[in-house]
Design a protein around this nucleic acid. Structure first.
Lengths: 212, 212
DNA sequence: CAAAAACTGGACCAGCAAGTCCAGTTTTCT
DNA sequence: AGAAAACTGGACTTGCTGGTCCAGTTTTTG
């Protein structure tokens, strides 16, 4: 992904410091949520000082936006092996399995790092929403491409709308993660994703069913 | 719904005060989220004092749990006309339409009041999760009953699992609301719910299709 | 009608939050 | 080399937060 930020000129050391800050903040946000993460925590975890934070970021929300980018990179990167072959029903199912397994490994604690960020940031600065939208789009992009390929190859009927399908899958994913976190069980997520995949399957042609 | 709390003995005035506090807190939480709502805000909005808050609630989380109950009541109550006839595909679609319309009326600002509460409370006191689970269950309950009826009446195939269907619908709903809030558009919600209803439809019998 | 219990108001506190300031060091550029 | 710009540390300020305390009033109850 490498979602480059518009950071004009940075020394090697400066860039490293900035990266360290964002990484530390991302870890904290993943564990305690955005509101539950103080700048002091970020300072301690990244071994930096207040003035450095404000040297690299305008304010906390600005830092949080950078965290959103980083999370997106991280998520997309972690799922690259699966996302890269999301061009068949079988590939979609592998992606689902990996996701559910990952949640179980994390004992279903903590929702989607991007989803919780969205919940806390979406009602703030309008700039936040722009960033979050781009993050979701970036995340869904491999999904969208895979679905488009499937349709173009004739695995899905021509009337299948890859855009609508991808968006619905993302919704199922987010909602599933929220419920799974609340119930401390991967079951809601699994059911939500199964529903989403069944939905895609309902657009499959004979050929698509054979491939998938 | 009337999810009664275990409030031992309360004077008429005391009960009124308590209700006033919860209602005010619920409004604030709906607008600014749980973390964004201070007890001072609640005091001002409910015309009460600190000591009253702590007379009726053990601490902020306790108040927030009461808010979750109240939100659930409110949600279920608001949708009673539709939820009561959720025993056909047509009824399900009416419910969907009402929901999407309501979101558009609210200009898609603010996510699900219960969903955002879940995001912020689920990782705190374990008691929080118990309450949230009960809230989601209460919300999904009419859905579950409707789907069960549909299966028992032969509108859905015997292998349809009302429990799984209801949970998947809730996930689609929550995820759809999150994305709709982020995109300030009801489109993601509409697509997610359409997917969910299509999923139910895929279990419909000839008879069910006729009724729905 | 009194005493007990329920209720109320608001002053107060300690801690922590984001954000500011500035004096000093290191790196970069010419 | 030497000035400018980038970078660094940390003390400090201001405001708010959840939570405590207690003195006083109202309501309930024996």
């Amino acid at each position: 992904m490498t979602t480059a930020q518009h950071t004009p000129k940075l020394t090697a050391r400066g860039a490293a410091t900035r990266t360290r800050i964002v990484a530390a903040a991302a870890n904290l946000v993943r564990e305690h949520g955005a509101a539950g993460t103080s700048l002091d925590d970020v300072m301690a975890a990244s071994r930096t000082s207040k003035s450095q934070l404000y040297h690299y970021f305008a304010n906390k929300e600005d830092l949080l936006r950078a965290v959103a980018w980083q999370q997106t990179d991280r998520i997309v990167e972690a799922q690259r092996p699966e996302l890269d072959q999301l061009d068949s029903l079988a590939g979609l199912r592998r992606w689902r399995d990996k996701f559910v397994a990952a949640r179980d490994e994390a004992q279903n604690v903590g929702g989607c790092p991007l989803g919780s960020l969205a919940g806390e940031l979406a009602d703030g600065d309008p700039e936040n929403r722009v960033v979050l939208q781009k993050c979701f789009t970036a995340w869904a992009s491999p999904l969208l491409m895979g679905l488009t390929t499937m349709r173009d190859q004739g695995q899905l009927r021509p009337d299948a709308d890859p855009d609508a399908l991808a968006e619905a899958i993302m919704a199922a994913l987010q909602g599933g993660l929220l419920l799974s976190n609340t119930y401390r069980s991967s079951r809601p997520l699994a059911r939500a994703l199964d529903m989403a995949i069944d939905h895609v399957t309902s657009f499959a042609t004979v050929r698509g069913a054979a491939v998938g």
